[in-house]
Write a protein that binds this DNA or RNA. Structure first.
Lengths: 213, 213, 213, 213
DNA sequence: CATGAATGAGGGTTCATTCAT
DNA sequence: AATGAATGAACCCTCATTCAT
């Protein structure tokens, strides 16, 4: 799980209550944005689902666009950090890949709105988001590329454009996970998906998994 | 004497012009939709870019949504058919993959709006489009899966979930191509991209390219 | 039957053809206006029903509003004249009333569009029509009032406000005829309606029909 | 301390104000619809006359058509009930007719917009209104017919088609009242109009008023 | 004469945003 | 803090009208 902490100025335990409400509204907003997309999701949709008045929305957030961009960034941050941590917690490439994929699938199953927001919710929406989106995609790509370059330095990978490989890993994961979420019994297929995805990636990289642990 | 027929004599020429204009407006619309997405693209945006009045739009098309859905379907049809033809024109799996990837990259370089419309333009837009999008993604997946299953029957592939592999191929291609298009010198990198993508996919499939032609 | 003859400038038998077409379009227009009312009836509706192009409409008529007003006036003129003639062709009040009612019913059965245009088609439409409508209603009222005043002078009617009586006769006829037209077997009930209406009016006027022919 | 409750404490007062405003806007709408008719009256006309922004209209009402139909039905209901009550409050036919006419004239003088809305405002407008209009006309006709049938049963009326008589009464009243309203000194002529109309109707029915109270 | 492609003012409606309470 | 009535820019779309062919 993850929480949002937009800048504020109040203090004390009033802050906590305020934070709690803000956080709740943000989570609601993520759900709605993820489900309907930026434009189709109205502020009214959000406040209705959150059970507050429309004025309350504008007490906590400056406007719809700012909130969306913030949510997009925060959610991207959460997603990227989760995968990065999983990857960095391992030493060997095939463990790193497996851990990253596992983390990705976990989030998809546990917080599907995160995936929908990042992958489909915010496209073609606000001009300012194009840049944010590029930044996020870039981060995901580099996240996958780093272990490749390390492995490459150790001579564990055949010669290849690691950048391109990373891009493909990112894209392959996204698509496989989106398909997974589209299934009615997503959770049941989770582990099989992790295995399939990991193996495909490792083979794709030309990584010889035989003689490693 | 000539007057009465005039309207009919020219009618062929006029109809051709009309068709040409409709096509031109559709291409403009694809550009705008691809760039801004369905909601952010206004009819005014389209007609301004096309250099016509707003009424002209409604003379040619019934309404924004219908046009968009039509464009999405047509463009998807074009993209899918192009790749399918390329794939079907070959016999061996590695040739099929290479041809499919090549066709995809060609379209991306030649008609980038096609890719943007299909991959980013129509997300989170109209309810009726969700289904169209699913259909398109499904078609792309099955397009890649078919050659896999054939190769599998021939014993040329290691055991794997071909459906999942196809999903990953589709996603990997999309992402690599989107990244390619984001580069300033996309065209120059086209062939390298085709090679990289193809090889990654073939390796990912576990296809032994050594002992084939 | 009645025809329309808006001002024109051409001549010879070309004029006849032109007139024929113009007249045909006008009759079509009356039908459409009567059926849908001024605003709901579009120029496209009219030309489609007339089987001509939209440009043709503007060759024959300056614009929709002018045509409508003209049609309203002409149709009103036709209706009023028909009734006036019928009334004036008789000498005795009860014959006059009977003839007027008979003429009204005849027109309603034979040209229902005339009635619809005058009574319901052009209300609340164009500001300039308000006046025309008043003029028409006034004419109808005076048309009924004239024989009353004559009969009054002859001492055949009890003391009454003949103006008000005329208004009521006009309104009563309109409503009875509208109801008649709403019936599926309007034609079959025509004669009964004429009798009912005439008798009610004569009684309403206090006209003693017994001792007259 | 007071802040939280404020919104709720005032809520009653606010709701009253809101209701008052809605009512005021409805009255404005009736005026505008009555004056211009459904199509010619724009939502912008209504809000301008009401002195509010256009969004306010859609805060109070779902859309123009729904409001109009509602207003038409409500106004018709009010008018019909008023006359029905007046009629039902009497026993003898000539008292019933007199009371009905008196009520009609009273409403015309006091709320002329009611009459205009029902008689001219909503014609040739929305398809769904044709039916409403028929229903209203039918109700008015039956309202007049009922006392006729009762009187007939008692042998107080000469043989006649009471349905047709009722139609004529309705039409005669409408027209007389419309003419009354068109006069500058309508109010002054009210009582005379009531007398004239009532007498004409009673005579028209063949009702012998001499030997009754 | 006739056509119908093209125009754009204007209408109904939505929805992000403000502010008095 | 919270509310929700009020606002109005901006959207989609219609339709009377024009004009080149």
């Amino acid at each position: 799980m993850y929480t949002y902490d937009m800048a504020y100025r109040t203090s004390d335990k009033v802050r906590q209550k305020k934070d709690a409400k803000r956080t709740a509204m943000m989570q609601t907003a993520v759900q709605v944005f993820a489900e309907k997309g930026y434009h189709a999701a109205t502020v009214r949709d959000i406040v209705q689902k959150a059970g507050v008045a429309i004025g309350t929305f504008y007490f906590y957030f400056p406007d719809k666009e700012t909130l969306f961009v913030y949510l997009y960034e925060e959610t991207g941050e959460f997603l990227a950090q989760s995968l990065e941590q999983a990857i960095n917690s391992k030493e060997l490439l095939h463990h790193q890949i497996a851990a990253g994929v596992q983390a990705y699938v976990n989030i998809a199953l546990y917080e599907p709105a995160v995936i929908h927001l990042m992958l489909v919710g915010g496209i073609g929406a606000i001009p300012s988001l194009h840049e944010k989106r590029s930044i996020f995609r870039e981060r995901m790509t580099q996240m996958w590329q780093r272990p490749l370059d390390f492995a490459n330095d150790d001579g564990n990978l055949p010669d290849q454009n690691s950048r391109r490989s990373a891009e493909m890993i990112a894209g392959a994961c996204d698509e496989a996970i989106l398909n997974l979420l589209a299934q009615p019994d997503a959770e049941a297929s989770g582990q099989a998906a992790v295995r399939d995805i990991t193996l495909f990636i490792l083979r794709g990289l030309g990584y010889n998994t035989q003689d490693k642990t």
